[in-house]
């Protein structure tokens, strides 16, 4: 088999000890990086070197490394999850870079997503939003037979597309207003599109209120979220959320 190509990069990485630390950039040389490596594997290599030099490795969250758990993520040259659309940082491969590139790596930033260390951020605000209504209330054991309620395929598919959200917060990170509208609307859409989820009307209001309370911004329809979303979730969901919101507020 042909030899894999290797490249050398200059990394400019955000280092921050803890939430209180001001943080700063640190420059690292990434030498002879195999282009078949994933971006996180490239960071592994840097971290190995740092460790062997008794320096603290770069902290970053990651787990599944196949784009589904939503743990990973960083701004790469100013773009959430890096230059390839429709993938997470762990799915980004080094063949997307050129020899000699400088790569700026920053954590996802927003007031409501404070940095914990280096590239690790606190996304618990998302959990608190879900807790306010991101579910269908059905007690274990009380469900009717699954095929009793047919669901129009188009709706079921749209619901699935919205449910594909991995909660990585790239939408917030990319938004000029640090709004969580895409995240919230994806959950609202997933559930409201299904007959099972239709009954809980207050969901949308409670979730939006919690989003505001957490300190996320409002939506200015700039659609940066849609462009950043690794699961290509559409702003159509935000329109649906707005619609559901009006319906609920005006009916009462």
């Amino acid at each position: 088999m042909a030899e894999d190509k290797t490249i050398t990069l200059t990394l400019k990485v955000w280092r921050q000890k803890n939430a209180e630390d001001k943080g700063h950039f640190e420059i690292y040389k990434a030498k002879d990086i195999n282009e078949n490596m994933s971006f996180l594997e490239m960071l592994d290599v840097i971290n190995d070197t740092l460790t062997l030099n008794n320096q603290t490795p770069i902290a970053f969250d990651h787990d599944c490394r196949e784009g589904i758990c939503g743990s990973c993520g960083a701004m790469v040259n100013g773009v959430a999850h890096g230059p390839v659309s429709g993938v997470t940082l762990c799915q980004l491969h080094m063949r997307s870079f050129n020899d000699g590139d400088t790569v700026v790596i920053e954590p996802f930033r927003a007031k409501s997503l404070p940095v914990i260390q280096d590239l690790v951020i606190d996304r618990t605000a998302f959990d608190r939003i879900i807790a306010k209504g991101g579910y269908i209330s059905v007690k274990t054991g009380s469900a009717p037979e699954a095929n009793d309620t047919p669901i129009e395929k188009k709706k079921a598919d749209a619901s699935f597309d919205a449910a594909a959200c991995i909660g990585c917060s790239a939408c917030v990170a990319a938004c000029p207003n640090a709004s969580a509208s895409l995240f919230v609307s994806a959950k609202v859409s997933h559930l409201v599109l299904l007959p099972q989820g239709h009954a809980e009307k207050k969901r949308v209001v409670q979730m939006v209120d919690q989003m505001d309370k957490e300190g996320f911004g409002g939506c200015s329809n700039a659609y940066q979220c849609q462009a950043a979303c690794p699961k290509e979730i559409k702003v159509e969901n935000i329109a649906r959320m707005n619609r559901e919101y009006i319906k609920e507020k005006s009916i009462r």
Partner: peptide
Amino acid sequence: ITNRKARVNRYYKYQNHRSES
């Protein structure tokens, strides 16, 4: 004002994502 507050933390480098807006 709300939106600026939410985005207090600015980026060193930020690009218009895939020229969406």
